[in-house]
Design a protein around this nucleic acid. Structure first.
Length: 462
RNA sequence: UCCUCAGUAGCUCAGUUGGUUAGAGCGGCGGACUGUUAAUCCGUAGGUCGUAGGUUCAAGUCCUACCUGGGGAGCCA
């Protein structure tokens, strides 16, 4: 007989026929006559109840049906006699596929702390919460590809190993095949990277943006979706050393087109999840974050507030709120400032634009005022900056001048500059942190709980 | 990296001004129970008190360093 998934069985309209079920035992209840076994196979958040008459199965077998064990059940799918579930399976045949010694198996029927589950990340997939989170993670990844594909964007694979160290997005992980104990040295005593695998120093990428721009300036609209690495010693619930980022890049888009896309994109993803992951969201709303669904719907139904940096500074100064860090034009907004704008003042997502050039990257389009650049940050409640982007500087001379001011060597980025030299056009793009998006949509408050295998300082188990 | 809090049974935690043999709930194990829903009831085992030093007649408790984790900050996505 062909195996049916729990998802199929729970949705089944046809009853009273034989089915084959395979899955993992979540709980077992019962009395001396009958056992109720909750079986989950991860296809949906719900488990299905298997009813086993103890007269029909040897005691030695039933003793092996413990929390965490895997079983195969053949039996009739029937309407449940008890309350709490619509259907159940009356077991005719039951096989234990894999034992799970109850004295050793760490997961219990009761809830565990996320901190503890992080220590057993290899088993946390078997919990309701992590099942929900990772099913949603999948759906979001799929929805991202669907969104861009439906709009004519091309998925571009930018390199994971990069030779450019000029992107300014933080510390990088070095990639080398040199012997770290005895690296080759040149005449001046420095490590001789000409003998390294690529003949030059290389790192793991911190962003695919610069390469993404090359694609956009030929294919019109592209997006990247891949792993990104930051060697920063960041210890917060919002940072990991290895994460996934989505970076669309569009030729012929100005900053306003860019904002329109960012807002539409985020709303699409929220809507997609509400429509396709209802059961998982309802579970998370009930068990993890009681305000989750309401917040998602609110973000969906209201336009994002758009305002430039200078106006935001004005609001903060007028607010009368007490901040630990002073509000001053020219300095970057602190987390407390962003939170005030999003959570107290506007009470909705905010897109801030036109930041002072000094606090933003060299590639951002310079405004005519000579002071600000066409940056755009999308700020979300709970998690802060979810998107950072800009219209890009397309004038070669202006970019070269800015690079000089910021001590960025032109020769390392000659290929990037040539896109401004040959047929340059207005273009824009942004980066969305995939895990931060998942945090917002699932209500999980620690980024380590929305990525299957988190990499953080001093932690790379599993 | 800085600030701060924490680390006691498999899990979640209590443990008084330092003072005899370190407790509870859940989970596990044994038993009872005719349909359970985090089942219920009775019984039971289980501890190098994060690690290393120190103070003291005496340290889970006080001091120092380190490790690990949570929260906040910085950096950012």
């Amino acid at each position: 007989m062909k195996r049916s998934t729990v998802k199929m069985l729970l949705a089944s309209r046809e009853l009273d026929h034989e089915v084959l079920l395979k899955g993992w035992v979540r709980t077992r209840r019962g009395n001396n006559q009958v056992a109720f076994i909750a079986v989950n196979d991860g296809t949906v958040i719900h488990s299905i109840q298997v009813v086993a008459d103890l007269d029909a199965f040897p005691e030695a077998l039933m003793k092996r049906v413990t929390t965490g064990s895997s079983i195969s059940v053949t039996g009739k799918l029937v309407a449940s006699q008890g309350k709490g579930q619509r259907v159940e399976i009356l077991a005719r045949e039951l096989i234990v596929l894999g034992d799970a010694d109850p004295e050793e198996y760490p997961l219990q029927k009761k809830g565990h702390s996320f901190e503890f589950l992080r220590e057993i990340a290899h088993l946390r997939f078997r919990t309701n919460t992590f099942g929900a989170v990772f099913r949603i993670r999948h759906s979001l990844a799929f929805a991202i590809h669907k969104y861009f594909n439906d709009r004519g964007f091309f998925y571009l694979h930018t390199p994971i190993i990069t030779a450019s160290d000029a992107e300014g997005a933080g510390a990088m992980f070095k990639v080398t095949t040199l012997d770290l104990n005895e690296p080759p040295r040149n005449d001046s005593g420095a490590i001789d990277f000409t003998q390294d695998f690529f003949g030059r120093p290389t790192n793991l990428t911190v962003s695919g943006q610069l390469e993404g721009e090359l694609g956009a300036l030929a294919l019109s609209s592209i997006y990247t979706f891949g792993p990104t690495f930051r060697a920063e010693n960041s210890n917060t619930p919002r940072h990991v050393a290895e994460f996934w980022m989505i970076e669309p890049e569009m030729a012929f888009y100005d900053i306003h087109d860019n904002m329109d896309l960012a807002e539409d994109f985020l709303k699409y993803l929220i809507k997609y999840t509400l429509e396709h992951c209802q059961d998982d969201l309802e579970f998370l709303n009930k068990m993890v974050d009681k305000g989750l669904m309401e917040r998602l719907r609110f973000v969906l139904e209201h336009p994002f507030e758009r305002m430039n940096y200078t106006a935001a500074i004005h609001i903060l100064k007028q607010s009368g709120a007490k901040f630990e860090f002073p509000v001053a034009w020219g300095s970057d907004l602190q987390a407390e400032h962003e939170r005030y704008l999003v959570e107290k003042h506007f009470k909705r997502p905010v897109i801030l634009t036109d930041y002072p050039a000094e606090i933003k990257a060299f590639y951002m389009k310079q405004n005519d005022d000579g002071k600000t650049v066409r940056a755009m940050d999308v700020l979300f409640p709970m998690i802060g900056e979810i998107i950072g982007g800009s219209q890009r500087e397309e004038e070669l001379g202006k970019m070269q001048q800015r690079m000089k001011e910021m001590n960025i060597p032109e020769d390392e980025l000659w290929w990037y500059l040539e896109t401004r030299k040959f047929g340059t056009v207005e273009h824009s793009g942004f980066g969305l942190g995939f895990e931060r998006l998942i945090m917002f949509i699932t209500g999980m408050s620690n980024i380590r709980d929305v990525i299957p295998f988190p990499r953080t300082p001093k932690s790379a188990e599993f």
